[in-house]
């Protein structure tokens, strides 16, 4: 009996210690957290920039059979590296890690198809946009979902943890059961294998999926508000933010993102989507029309 008591005491103490460490840490938390980013000068001096990109989201950010990062986001990242005159260290990220990676200083820039939302803007700083996006829903040909009300009880929609599609559905359609995955690779594999009646994600992504794979139709090509995709930096990293903004504006003069589209996305989407998707010089098309 004595031994059991000892054991309980030890485990109890272990529990208290674990909680204690967390508690003590929390007290220190707020002060240090915001000095983790590196300014432009520090990045140039170190000779390397850390850029968080997807490694499993073709054609935006993926790795080819030679181990090289490729895609629309990567094409832009490559240019950033050249113009800063530094080496690029690509950090493979998952959707749900993007904010975390910036806030903990593990990357300098996130260029992982990051949709600008007010909630995210409270956590990180977005530069000017370089792509348009909305949400879309792709489903199997034999049961095309054209309206979310078609999703019956007991049926699931696949989303990727940490994406705008997840946030949107959690907020606007809480009655729909979601099947969440943490990587694009996992979500696509599961969807192909028949998990979930539909997959909700950025419309660019679901359109690409339906084009590249037989047997799928994008039943809903625009859900929620029209948003944009932009690079993001750690909150408060003003020097890097303004450098990025200047870069995007000046790249607009040479129609850089159109070239990017033609090099990386045209294979998938054809040229029809070029003007709907590309945002050049940080100026959103709607704003242009207003002028």
């Amino acid at each position: 009996m004595k031994n059991i008591l000892k054991k309980i005491a030890a485990t109890g103490l272990a529990a208290v210690t674990a909680i204690g460490i967390i508690g003590a840490g929390t007290a220190l938390a707020s002060e240090d957290a915001d000095t983790l980013y590196r300014s432009v000068d520090e990045i140039i001096e170190s000779g390397t920039i850390n850029i968080g990109v997807f490694s499993d989201k073709s054609p935006f950010g993926y790795v080819d059979e030679y181990g090289e990062y490729q895609g629309y986001d990567v094409y832009f990242a490559q240019r950033i590296g050249e113009d800063l005159g530094v080496e690029i260290n690509y950090v493979s990220t998952e959707a749900a890690n993007r904010i975390e990676y910036l806030q903990t200083g593990k990357v300098d820039i996130i260029l992982a198809n990051f949709t600008v939302t007010p909630e995210r803007a409270e956590e990180v700083d977005f530069a000017l946009p370089y792509m348009n996006v909305a949400l879309g829903v792709v489903s199997h040909d034999d049961n095309v979902i054209t309206d979310l009300s078609q999703v019956e009880e007991g049926q699931q929609i696949i989303v990727i943890s940490g994406t705008t599609a997840e946030t949107y559905l959690v907020k606007n359609n809480p009655e729909i059961q979601l099947q969440k995955f943490d990587t694009y690779a996992a979500a696509k594999s599961a969807f192909e294998n028949g998990t979930g009646v539909a997959w909700a994600n950025d419309n660019t992504e679901v359109i690409a999926f339906a084009i590249e794979n037989e047997g799928y139709t994008v039943g809903i090509d625009s859900l929620g508000s029209a948003d944009t995709i932009a690079p993001a930096v750690t909150k408060g990293n003003d020097s890097l933010l303004s450098w990025l903004n200047d870069e995007i504006v000046s790249l607009g003069e040479e129609n850089f993102f159109h070239a990017d589209y033609e090099a990386t996305l045209a294979d998938t989407y054809g040229l029809d989507y070029e003007d709907t998707l590309v945002v050049e010089g940080g100026v959103i098309a709607a704003a242009e029309e207003a002028e």
Binding site: A96, R98, S161, D182
Partner: peptide
Amino acid sequence: AKDLIGLYSKTI
């Protein structure tokens, strides 16, 4: 835990 961190960034 991961999902909530991704959604609302309340890591601690």
